[in-house]
Amino acid sequence: MGWRGITVAKRSNQQWLNDLRAEGQPREQALADLHTILVRGLQQGLLHQINTNTPEFAALAEDFVQEALIKILDQLDSFAGRSLFTTWAHKITLHVALTELRRKRWQDHSLDGLLATDEGEYTPLLVASSSPGPAEQTEQADLMAQVQQLLLHGLTEKQRTALIALVIHGLSPEQIAAEMEMKTNAVYKLLHDARLRLRTLLEKQGLTPAQVLQAFES
């Protein structure tokens, strides 16, 4: 890859901020260096997500880094200096890349598909747990049926879509707002109402979220 072997000057946090806020050559050089650092970082960070040794990856990484650089420059004033600047920049870039990869999967499959049990439609990164016994399996199946009914019939479609987008797909309220063509404040309200409604519905069944969770984790 073209960017391999390029030497990048090290900078302190303040030097990064100064150079990126400067005009002309210092800014251009800092942007070029940061670009190189972030592309190299993505190759490591996405190793378990996609094949990072293909020509296609270079184009994909370029897109992710360009988008991340825009965010980084936009959010420069919010960098508090509690971490290394490059760590903060890597975090933003990795988030952009994973969100885009996740969004692509989300767009490729309908919500119905995600909720369906078709194998491979949605593969969570849950830690494997030990297999429950027959009694626990029955209890879990009953609880599952109960909670499923609440989710499918107790929440509005908008509430369900927003909550699943937030919790399952990791989208931010801003991203959900864009996807659902709503204002961000309305999404916050929608999520609040969805949580409240779900908790209330569980209570009516004599359940709490912790009890349901415990039944699946026991």
């Binding site: 909720l115 849950l126 599952m144 399952i168 949580r195 979220p209 349901v212 969770l213 699946f216």
Partner: peptide, 17 residues
């Protein structure tokens, strides 16, 4: 939507709450 929601989705929603 009559298909069941997977255990993982229920677990994660409950954990979120």
């Amino acid at each position: 939507m009559s298909e069941p929601i997977g255990t993982d989705i229920v677990q994660r929603l409950m954990r979120h709450l």
